[in-house]
């Protein structure tokens, strides 16, 4: 596998190298592709790096997001209602890549839409669009032959979710075949619910470090700049999702449509979060 891993995840490796140079953690922001509509979503996406996002996670909408809380479920529903589908998600990435060659984009979601697209064709189209990696919630290492192995062979990163339930016995299996970074889900639960304590994160980081040299991003339950800063003291990156898509929800008019405030409310929050993350270790 190792010869393949070197392939196309330059952007992620370069970004973490740069963060290391700057002596700070990164901010990973999540939005759902097509939320609240494809055009507004593209506007938001384009503005994220300037607002302080170091890495972008772009959700692939799905009707049955089993591991997501209400905020991201609703984001998915808004996107689907606005006619979003996988090919449009990939063209969103392509449009972004035309102007930004450095910010890594990770597609995040569930397996079925990829499986139905066709794994080989999806990987080809995703790589050509400028996608750097995948996070697929419902593919544990037991199902690596499905997508993980083909993804890594294609030169994209397959980023693994690890959880509070991933103990020393389980972790060696989890860091196999993985690349880019490791995503630590800091609380057992759905996105946007409770948050982990500092001590819990410190303990988990130590556990993960025993098993991998990859950068570690910590997510789930991070809602404020202060929380992001706390995480940024320990981890290589902090991931924020539900809080950002909740801003989108908040910005909509009474018919659920985007307003002229939608993009700016999102970038405003991202700026605050980035400030928290960037000043955390000062």
């Amino acid at each position: 596998m190792s010869e393949a891993i070197i392939g196309g995840q330059d952007r992620i490796a370069k970004r973490f190298a740069k963060l290391k140079e700057e002596g700070r953690a990164g901010l990973v922001t999540f939005i759902t592709a097509g939320d609240p509509d494809p055009e507004t979503s593209f506007e938001i996406l384009k503005q994220l790096p300037e607002a302080g996002a170091d890495i972008i996670e772009l959700g692939m909408p799905f009707t049955d997001p089993m591991a997501d809380g209400p905020a991201i479920q609703e984001a998915s529903n808004r996107a689907l209602a606005a006619g979003m589908h996988m090919r449009k998600t990939l063209s969103l990435v392509r449009g972004f890549r035309d102007q930004d060659h450095e910010t890594p984009i990770i597609l995040m979601g569930y397996y079925n839409p990829i499986y139905i697209y066709g794994v080989a064709e999806f990987l080809e189209d995703a790589r050509n669009a400028g996608v750097d990696g995948l996070i697929v919630v419902d593919l544990p290492p037991e199902e690596d032959d499905e997508l993980c192995v083909p993804t890594v062979k294609k030169g994209l990163s397959f980023i693994r979710l690890t959880a509070p339930t991933s103990d020393d016995k389980r972790l060696p299996k989890l860091v196999q075949n993985t690349s880019g970074f490791v995503y630590y889900v800091s609380v057992a639960g759905v996105t946007g619910a409770g948050s982990a304590s500092n001590d819990q994160i410190i303990e988990a980081m130590a556990r993960l470090r025993r098993h991998t040299d990859l950068p570690i991003a910590v997510g789930f339950g991070i809602k404020s700049a202060a929380q992001a800063a706390d995480v940024a003291k320990q981890a290589d990156a902090a991931v924020v999702g539900s809080a950002i898509v909740s801003k989108i929800a908040e910005s909509l008019d009474e018919n659920g449509k985007a307003t002229d405030k939608t993009a700016s409310m999102v970038t405003g929050l991202v700026r605050e979060l980035a400030n928290g993350v960037r000043n955390a270790r000062k």
Partner: peptide, 11 residues
């Protein structure tokens, strides 16, 4: 198969 979130796998 076992297409579930990692949090559930140990269980």
């Amino acid at each position: 198969g076992r297409f579930v979130a990692e949090t559930l796998m140990p269980l």
